[in-house]
Amino acid sequence: MSTVFKALSDPTRRRVLELLREGPQSAGALAAHFNVSKPTMSAHFSVLKEADLVEAVRQGKTILYHLKLSVLEDALLGFARVFGLGETAPPPAIKKSSENKKEDPVS
């Protein structure tokens, strides 16, 4: 799980994941969103692959990156459990004031 949090700690990698939410994209299309060198983007992609947050599929000379949501969801649920989030019941629904008032019959 620490590799996932390492991957998520960098704003560039988080932005890559946001972009991949729209669908698979090539390395070049993703890199076009950033003002960094190709080797730097390659390093970011490697960290994301190591954390199993993305899958790289080669199609000819192009590498398409796909977001692996299940891994991200598992990491976030694990994080929530560590801090005790999501374990309590939701607060009871608030009734409208008209529902809380009982009318007394007039004798």
Score class of each variant (00 low, 15 high):
L77I: 01
D104K: 10
A89S: 11
E55L: 14
A51Q: 01
L72V: 02
T88D: 13
G23I: 11
G28V: 12
A31S: 09
S46E: 05
M1R: 06
F83T: 06
N100T: 15
K101D: 14
A51G: 03
V54S: 07
K96M: 08
M41N: 09
D52H: 08
L20H: 12
L30N: 00
E18T: 08
H66E: 02
R14Y: 11
A80R: 02
V106A: 06
K61L: 07
A56W: 07
L19C: 10
R15D: 04
S9F: 12
L48R: 06
L30T: 01
V71D: 00
P92H: 01
A51N: 04
S98N: 09
G23Y: 05
P91W: 05
K95R: 12
K95M: 12
S70E: 15
F83E: 09
T12M: 11
F83S: 12
A29R: 10
A89H: 11
P92W: 01
A31Y: 03
E73C: 15
I94F: 06
R58G: 11
P90E: 15
G86Q: 04
V82M: 03
K96F: 06
P91H: 07
E22M: 10
L69E: 14
H66L: 01
A7H: 02
S97G: 13
S26Y: 06
L67T: 00
R15P: 01
A31R: 07
